[in-house]
Simulated scan of single mutants.
Amino acid sequence: MIHANTDSEWLPLYEALASPVRLSIINLLASNPMNVKELAESLGLSSAIVTMHVKKLEKAGLVQTKMVRKHGGTHKICSLAERSIAIELPQPVPDAKKMHEISVPVGHYTQFEVHPTCGIATVDKTVGQYDDPRFFLEPERMNAGILWFGKGFVEYKVPNYLLPGQKPLALEIVLEIGSEAPGTNENYPSDIYFELNGKDIGTWTSPGDYGDVRGRYTPSWWHDKVNQYGLLKVIRIQEDRTLIDGQHMSDMSIGEIGLDRNFWTFSIGVKEEAAHVGGLTLYGKGFGNYNQDILFRVFYEDARSN
């Protein structure tokens, strides 16, 4: 799934959709992969015109092409690269100027307990060997752009930059995440829990471990048959409850979290006794479909001004 918003970087996507011909191409490819000649014949257009439209769809990340040997020749086959698109419109927030944002790399965990299948990698190489939890202690893991495990947890310490008199109103945690199947499997549910300062803020069931197409930012050396991308999730703890992507996740409120300390402790994992023990994969900068690490955004008001 593509998670888009109103930032200008998504203009190629919206431009790609603003064409009856390109929408027709998407509808045709939803049934079967086709080459440019087949698309042109179905649409009653020249191959040159269809090629131009396909390039726009490729640029938008909606269509992918690959060379395939077929009927004694080599053909450029087009297929859909995504299943769906979600567009997030700007949400009202308490005084957007009063916010602290902290980006925490996925390898900067301070505690962990992981079980195979597991591994960790930077944008340049795998750290150590697959399925050996000892390498989660390797100093180079601080540069990690991806990590995965079958069950267990990782824990992060997040500095609190709120000043005396600044009252937290909401906290957002934004991260790209998926399950961890041997290889990949889009139907591989996993109950992933989230804790903040020792408080259970909720559990989300990841649908699967995605690898049908390469991640938009995944390094070229990364193997095609393993984790490629996840889903971008936005957890929001506010004054009355906790939401994930705008949907109720728990009744935990911002006042119960205890944000009046020098740092916060965020844990994420999969419990052995969960109904769906499907592991988890965390994507950071240089991997997946979103070029970001784990983002923490705290919105606040200055109590001294009230």
Rank of each mutant, 00 (worst) to 15 (best):
48 A>Q: 14
275 A>C: 06
148 W>M: 11
292 Q>K: 13
157 K>A: 12
69 R>M: 12
202 G>D: 00
125 K>H: 13
236 R>W: 07
44 G>R: 03
180 E>T: 08
264 W>K: 01
135 F>A: 00
175 L>P: 02
56 K>H: 08
279 G>S: 03
148 W>G: 11
290 Y>R: 08
232 L>F: 01
255 G>S: 09
219 P>H: 04
178 G>P: 00
223 H>R: 15
129 Q>A: 10
267 S>E: 09
36 V>I: 15
6 T>E: 13
124 D>V: 05
9 E>V: 15
26 I>G: 01
253 S>L: 02
216 R>A: 03
83 R>H: 12
222 W>N: 03
172 E>D: 15
29 L>I: 07
140 E>S: 10
160 N>A: 08
90 P>K: 02
63 V>N: 07
30 A>E: 10
124 D>E: 10
204 W>S: 08
10 W>R: 03
212 D>E: 15
240 D>P: 04
2 I>L: 14
19 S>G: 11
162 L>V: 06
121 A>V: 05
213 V>H: 05
279 G>C: 07
40 A>H: 02
13 L>P: 12
103 S>K: 11
53 H>Y: 09
162 L>C: 07
187 N>E: 12
78 C>N: 13
36 V>W: 03
224 D>I: 09
124 D>Q: 10
57 L>P: 03
175 L>N: 00
77 I>N: 05
121 A>K: 00
245 D>V: 01
51 T>W: 11
167 K>Y: 07
130 Y>N: 10
159 P>L: 11
168 P>T: 12
36 V>D: 07
284 G>V: 11
279 G>Y: 06
222 W>G: 01
292 Q>C: 02
220 S>K: 03
266 F>V: 05
